[in-house]
Amino acid sequence: MTEDSTDDSTAMQAGFDALIAGDERVEPRDWMPEGYRKTLIRQIAQHAHSEIIGMQPEGNWITRAPSLRRKAILMAKVQDEAGHGLYLYSAAETLGIDRSELLDLLHAGRQKYSSIFNYPTLTWADMGAIGWLVDGAAIVNQVPICRCSYGPYARAMVRICKEESFHQRQGFEILWTLSHGSPAQRAMAQDAVNRYWWPSLMMFGPPDTGDGASPSGHTAQSMAWGIKRFSNDELRQRFVDMTVPQAEALGLSLPDPEIRWNEERGSYDFGEIDFTELFEVVKGNGPCNAERMAHKVKAHEDGAWVREAAAAYAAKRESAVA
């Protein structure tokens, strides 16, 4: 390395540091440290994969939705999720990686998606619980990313959060209708909330401190880079504080006897989360990990001849024009 290039890289690092320090946006054409690029690719890809795998548990109910209005809303919602996947893969592509490479990494199990989608959707009420709790938790996680230091990710997230907020309201409305319906519908709603509550709390990731805490320095580094703005436990608390009053409004209980208002903290206390479950699901031992991946890989493989045909046709047209 010559002295000049050392000077260049020092200057480039200084430019990057100044953008971060000034809370400005890093854009694709800007120089960025390799670690920053890799962290963003991993995070945006995981987010994109979560949108795509997340279509499955809800897509599971499109053909069985109990009214035409609900069917239309559900189809639109799953379509939104595919659209979110598209924006996010595009944001990742600005970092110099193709969507097809990211999909290969997902299919090979080398990139992850949110563990919540490894839980089954067993009744119609699960469409409500996913909208209310899972999309609600996603919003709490994602709103701070609208201020992420990487411009394309932040901008994709602004659009996504607007739609997520609609998704959350529709989930709440499904549960409201069920909890004010027949005894069977009410029981269906309570059962869905019972099954989805704890996994939703686990969506914020491992605790900040203690036995289950993430040993790596990922969180601290991501905070320093302006990718992450709040810790896992801060976001989890925000979600609990937002959700407990909503559960009361629904007339449904949350499956945690330790939830109570803590006047001193100005927040709700809640029971201990069994993080061994989260770690098991992350490792691949959740209720639906194998099915979700098998479904995704099958669709991809079954569609290979279609994608090859589209590419061959485009090449023929191009050579005809040339």
């Binding site: 499109i62 379509q79 996947g85 569609g303 290979a304």
Partner: peptide, 10 residues
């Protein structure tokens, strides 16, 4: 609706 999540590309 049966195609959703099963299509050849996003």
């Amino acid at each position: 609706g049966e195609w959703v999540t099963n299509a050849p590309q996003l």
